[in-house]
């Protein structure tokens, strides 16, 4: 039973004049954990941001299937998509506490002006228990270690109770315990039928942690199940091949 959660077609994205993603076509499987693998500057984060509508592509489109058989644009299913940015993307000296950050995950459901209520608070506390951070709930966020920060971000995504989870390098600079907690939760999500997409940098752990893999280097080098696609040849091709898109454009 293979269902597609996200369908990406002919996606080309450029920063100013430089194309970063070149005609990316992908089907992300529903209820699976998909790793996006590729060298630095391969456009992994850009791909995530394009899926989230944070960047306007030159061409191509991204469609989502949250309910069976219905295809929609990002805008109409926004609430069903949770995003965990790189933890370096925010200022951790911001004057707020752990519980507050997690409650922010409810803001999307609340919409404009409505304040979080008891239910939202309870849910945030529940998810903090899940990521093993409940005893830290009143801590100022600057006091957390890298792994703890990442777990707080994951809890913020969990309270969104989404169908699709996009994580940008959640294991970068994270301790062993946090890595274990994060990956167990992602497995739990996918067994509950949620779709999990992770930008991943550690080739050693792909087989252990993921079902599907996408090799990306400006374009899709290969995509498929880890069992069949995660091979020496493809890894080498992804990291070796000169994928300078600018040259490809010249050839056209």
């Amino acid at each position: 039973m293979n269902q597609t959660a996200i369908h990406i077609e002919q996606l080309t994205v450029a920063y100013q004049a430089v194309p970063v993603l070149w005609q990316v076509g992908l089907n992300i499987q529903k209820g699976k954990r998909t790793a996006i693998i590729g060298p630095n500057g391969a456009g992994k984060s850009t791909l995530i941001k394009s899926i989230l509508g944070l960047m306007t592509p030159l061409t191509g489109e991204v469609d989502f299937s949250v309910k069976d058989g219905e295809w929609s644009e990002y805008k109409s299913i926004k609430k069903s998509v949770a995003y965990v940015p790189q933890k370096s993307s925010v200022d951790w000296d911001f004057p707020t506490i752990v519980l507050d950050v997690v409650v922010m995950g409810r803001y999307g459901h609340l919409g404009w002006f409505k304040r979080p209520g008891k239910k939202d608070m309870a849910l945030a506390e529940e998810m903090l228990v899940k990521v093993g951070m409940h005893s830290f709930k009143d801590r100022q966020i600057s006091q957390l270690s890298g792994g703890q920060r990442q777990r707080v971000f994951l809890a913020r995504a969990l309270v969104q109770q989404a169908e699709i989870y996009l994580l940008d390098e959640p294991l970068a600079g994270v301790d062993m315990k946090s890595e274990k907690v994060i990956m167990e939760l992602l497995e739990e999500l996918s067994s509950a039928g949620k779709t999990v997409i992770v930008v991943h940098h550690d080739l050693q752990t792909v087989k252990e942690y993921f079902d599907e893999v996408v090799f990306l280097n400006r374009e899709v080098v290969a995509a498929g199940s880890v069992a069949t696609t995660f091979t020496e040849d493809i890894i080498e091709e992804t990291y070796r091949k000169d994928h300078s898109v600018a040259e490809r454009v010249d050839q056209l």
Partner: peptide
Amino acid sequence: FDPVFAQTA
């Protein structure tokens, strides 16, 4: 705190 996250919310 997190403008990108706010946008996705």
